[in-house]
Design a protein around this nucleic acid. Sequence first.
DNA 1: CACGAGACCTGTTCGC
DNA 2: TGCGAACAGGTCTCGT
Length: 269
Amino acid sequence: MPELPEVETIARKLNASLAGSRILSVDLRWERSLAEPSPAEFVRRLNGQTFEQVSRRGKFLHLSLSADHMLIHLRMSGDLQVVSGVHLPEKHDRLVLDLSGDRCLVFNDTRKFGRIWLVKDPDQVLGKLGPEPLADDLTVQVFQKRLGERHRQLKPLLLDQTFLAGLGNIYTDEVLHIAKLHPCLLSDSLSEAQVEKLWLAIRDILQEGIRRKGSSFDRVYRGGDFQNHFRVYGRAGLVCPVCGTTIERMLVGQRSTHFCPNCQPGKDG
DNA sequence: CACGAGACCTGTTCGC
DNA sequence: TGCGAACAGGTCTCGT
């Protein structure tokens, strides 16, 4: 499910509700959700700690504790929320923390792809991530230099978290449509004007996603409504909102990719 | 370095 | 209706 705007939305919500909460008990219900340390050490170390702050880096949730850092990646189907009162564990709950104040922190993850780390130094996990797309120091100039250093198709490059941290399959398709760039264009072939369009589109789309509190699919994540404003993602066979041409779907780097052949022509278009 | 295939998982939707 | 195939918001590892 979650890309940068969804993770940001969850982080803000958790930060407001979790700060100061003390962990009273730890119920790790699926051990393989834990990347490190061992389950026994995880439970022992976590017990009694207090949450201080929740933030986001790329698609990672960063939960600062009194003596450790808990990092959580939701991958495809993960969700993390605070629930009040008694929580009866549900089928796909992978971690449940009993908290002070009669609440629980629940990590629910149908497909079991999500991962949890408990570490002393968050850089152990976050160290390889590329820049934050919305950070002030990612200027057009810096972005242009990074694009030029690679020779890759735009879509897989934008999905590469060591190149840029936070874009996923939905937002990448939306970004390329706004920027009027074909997903298969090579990163070192763009004009200065095209680079600037791409840079602006990334910022615009992510900010719109955050403003709309992300996208909601199925019943995994509640709250956001960006899914009602997709321009191309999931809209193959429907018309492009800009020019009316039928939107197409193709595979790029094994990922389903949606684009407007008129707005986003390839090199022969 | 770039890229494709396969793995990791469960659930829903699609096509016959 | 039934059943298998295809597909889903992500990432890792291995081979070429």
